[in-house]
Amino acid sequence: MVRGRLVFISGGVRSGKTAFAENWLCAHAAGRRVYVATGRPIDREMRERIRHHRQDRAARPESWETIERPADFSGILPMIREGDGLLIDCITTWLANEMYEGIESGLPCHRRQGCLEEKVEALLCALSEMTGKASAVVVVSNEVLDEPLPATADIRAYSEMLGHIHQRLVSMADLAYEMDAGIPLRWKPENGK
């Protein structure tokens, strides 16, 4: 079977990146449309946000399967069927969830030597395996690196790791788009269809 395409879409808050990702997937994916949600309903705002995204999907003409997966994407692999179109939303939330994994034991992942690096490699590996089965994997993330250097060490480490992941994803991706106010700017490939 042909490898599914990997698509990276990044944009600012409310830039329309999820809608663009959904439309792209509807136009290009062969099988089921599967939404991989990373948000955790930890407070009222998050619950509202999740409800909003669910409503948006329910209002669409096509149907979606939803997989709730805040972290560890390798666990998604057995749930994927041949030809599925996957939408993973989003890497910023995934990274925050993985960074604080194990916090209840007093030592979150980002304070354990090499922990986060391992999780990043596992993420890239899982995405690569997904494209072996799915017809398309669309990965959504946020543009949050265009502001003054963050003040706390945690947020600095987060920003640095996010930039690193984005660079790796763009390098792996067949297509890469930056969303700005609802308008997609295609960075990769630069020319052609």
Binding site: L145, D146, S159
Partner: peptide, 12 residues
């Protein structure tokens, strides 16, 4: 002069 611009940690 050649100027490169981009966000932090973008590989400039």
């Amino acid at each position: 002069m050649h100027v490169y611009i981009g966000g932090a940690h973008n590989g400039k």
